[in-house]
């Protein structure tokens, strides 16, 4: 006997993501889901962002890792509220894991919440967590062909940060090629070149972020 089901596999996750979204709306948070490979510079970017946003907007961070709380410790040194989620074996954060961080964060005192996903270019793109947008980091040591290998993540992201451009001359990373590959996947994608080491491009990234936050506050006000 056959039983018709027609249920979206991620329906349970998407329902929780929608509930998270309600909570973020109530607290007027701009929520960014930050994704990249391991070692592309997510935590360092957050440290630079914390410094650059100081006095402009209140930042909060939820960070996911398979083990250890080293990332949250690094971020807390910048006086930013940070919650570490250890996922155990899971290679991504899902909506439920993100919700489990809420009791440890005062969302009403946060303007911009960045959710630092587990380092992985595949699974994090599949699971919505209630975010406004996805931002991904690609570092020049990873290669310019990555957009072709991980289409969903590039397709779903609003902004691509190409990091570690200070060491670009020492790599065979072709910037034109990388941009073309990424735009082929997602013609709407915005791209910024940054170096979290030298600080190059950080100002542009932070103004992109604050602009998104202002748009968010504006749209909540008119809603």
């Amino acid at each position: 006997m056959k039983i018709n089901v027609m249920t979206d596999v991620l329906e349970a996750n998407d329902r929780i993501a929608a509930a998270n979204r309600e909570i973020f709306n109530r607290n007027r948070n701009l929520v960014v889901n930050l994704m990249s490979s391991p070692g592309a510079g997510k935590t360092t970017l957050l440290e630079r962002t914390a410094e650059a946003l100081a006095g402009k907007a209140k930042l909060g961070v939820i960070t996911g890792d398979i083990e250890t709380s080293r990332d949250a410790e690094r971020i807390e040194k910048h006086n930013i509220p940070a919650v570490q989620l250890t996922t155990g074996t899971a290679c991504h954060l899902d909506a439920n894991m993100v919700a489990s961080a809420f009791p440890y964060l005062d969302l009403s005192r946060i303007d911009i919440l960045i959710i630092e996903n587990v380092g992985n270019l595949v699974c994090p793109a599949e699971f919505k967590v209630g975010e406004d947008c996805k931002v991904m980091i690609l570092s020049v040591t990873e290669g310019d062909e990555k957009p072709l290998k991980y289409p969903l993540m590039f397709r779903e992201s609003s902004l691509l940060l190409i990091n570690k451009i200070d060491i670009l001359p020492f790599t065979n990373f072709n910037m034109e090629e990388a941009r073309a590959n990424a735009l082929k996947m997602n013609p709407e994608l915005e791209i910024l070149e940054v170096s979290c080491t030298t600080g190059q491009g950080i100002e542009e990234w932070v103004s992109w972020l604050t602009q998104c936050w202002q748009n968010r506050v504006e749209s909540l006000r008119s809603a």
Binding site: K2, I3, N4, V5, M6, T7, D8, V9, L10, E126, L148, P151, R155, K184, M185, N186, P187
Partner: peptide, 26 residues
């Protein structure tokens, strides 16, 4: 994964299939 129209070269493409992930039946 080339989101460019083969007809006119346009880049404003609406995805109409290939993103689903569903249990159809058992």
């Amino acid at each position: 994964f080339s989101y460019i129209c083969p007809g006119c070269g346009g880049r404003d493409i609406e995805i109409t299939g290939g993103t689903e992930l569903r249990v159809r039946d058992i």
